[in-house]
Amino acid sequence: MKRIILVLSAVMIAFSLFAQSSDPIVGKWENSSKEGRVEIFKRGDKYFGKLYWIKDSSKKDEKNPDKSLRDRKIEGLEILKNFTKKGNTYEGGEIYDPKSGKTYSCKMTPKGDKLEVRGFVGVSLLGRTEVFTRIK
């Protein structure tokens, strides 16, 4: 009986490691200023990210272009939406910047324990990259 439990445990760990390696973007990340943390997850065949912690948890979405949303808290917002995996890059999605209230096209590229997040308007050349660090 112990042997069966041991084998099942090993199989579950192997599947868990395989799932993580096939989706290296999934997990918790901290932005470069260390003011916010995002949890990236898969929903269906797309990837999303929720701002699960910010330094000032009382901060509101005051810059949102939709006036009816300006009273909501920033902490808990889904700021990354609709990314698709293409090779080692996740693209076709959007990132919402609560500091400016603007939404940008975005692509993300994992590089080990770092995640390059590039927001842009139009083409990727016209944008800015921020590097997130994986939270262990």
Results as ranks from 00 to 15, higher is better:
residue 16 S to A: 14
residue 42 K to T: 02
residue 29 W to L: 11
residue 40 I to E: 03
residue 129 T to A: 04
residue 44 G to V: 07
residue 98 P to E: 06
residue 84 T to L: 09
residue 70 R to I: 09
residue 36 G to L: 08
residue 93 G to V: 04
residue 62 E to M: 09
residue 65 P to H: 11
residue 118 R to C: 07
residue 20 Q to M: 03
residue 135 I to P: 03
residue 112 G to Q: 11
residue 34 K to I: 00
residue 134 R to A: 08
residue 94 E to N: 10
residue 79 I to T: 05
residue 126 L to I: 10
residue 125 L to I: 15
residue 112 G to Y: 02
residue 129 T to Y: 08
residue 89 T to Y: 03
residue 111 K to I: 07
residue 74 I to Y: 00
residue 52 Y to W: 09
residue 112 G to T: 04
residue 73 K to P: 05
residue 60 K to Y: 00
residue 60 K to R: 15
residue 109 T to S: 10
residue 77 L to P: 05
residue 15 F to D: 07
residue 124 S to T: 15
residue 62 E to N: 12
residue 9 S to A: 12
residue 72 R to D: 12
residue 92 G to C: 09
residue 27 G to R: 05
residue 80 L to P: 02
residue 80 L to I: 09
residue 47 Y to H: 04
residue 49 G to S: 05
residue 108 M to G: 05
residue 65 P to D: 14
residue 69 L to M: 14
residue 116 E to R: 15
residue 78 E to I: 11
residue 57 S to E: 12
residue 135 I to S: 08
residue 107 K to G: 00
residue 97 D to R: 07
residue 120 F to P: 09
residue 60 K to F: 01
residue 94 E to F: 03
residue 114 K to W: 02
residue 104 Y to W: 13
residue 103 T to C: 08
residue 48 F to K: 00
residue 114 K to H: 09
residue 10 A to S: 13
residue 101 G to T: 06
residue 88 N to I: 05
residue 78 E to S: 04
residue 126 L to P: 07
residue 21 S to L: 10
residue 73 K to R: 12
residue 41 F to W: 15
residue 34 K to L: 10
residue 67 K to C: 07
residue 50 K to V: 03
residue 12 M to L: 13
residue 102 K to T: 09
residue 39 E to C: 08
residue 72 R to L: 08
residue 77 L to I: 12
residue 68 S to F: 06
residue 111 K to E: 08
residue 15 F to I: 13
residue 67 K to D: 15
residue 63 K to W: 05
residue 70 R to V: 11
residue 103 T to D: 07
residue 58 S to G: 10
residue 65 P to R: 14
residue 80 L to V: 03
residue 113 D to P: 07
residue 58 S to N: 12
residue 63 K to R: 12
residue 41 F to T: 04
residue 85 K to W: 00
residue 35 E to Q: 14
residue 2 K to H: 13
residue 53 W to C: 01
residue 112 G to N: 13
residue 81 K to C: 01
residue 47 Y to G: 01
residue 26 V to T: 12
residue 42 K to S: 04
residue 75 E to H: 03
residue 91 E to F: 00
residue 36 G to Y: 13
residue 14 A to K: 06
residue 24 P to D: 11
residue 3 R to D: 12
residue 71 D to G: 14
residue 91 E to C: 09
residue 37 R to C: 10
residue 84 T to W: 03
residue 69 L to D: 07
residue 106 C to P: 01
residue 121 V to G: 01
residue 85 K to L: 02
residue 45 D to T: 04
residue 113 D to R: 10
residue 46 K to R: 14
residue 112 G to I: 04
residue 117 V to A: 03
residue 106 C to K: 00
residue 21 S to W: 02
residue 4 I to Q: 14
residue 22 S to T: 15
residue 48 F to V: 00
residue 95 I to F: 01
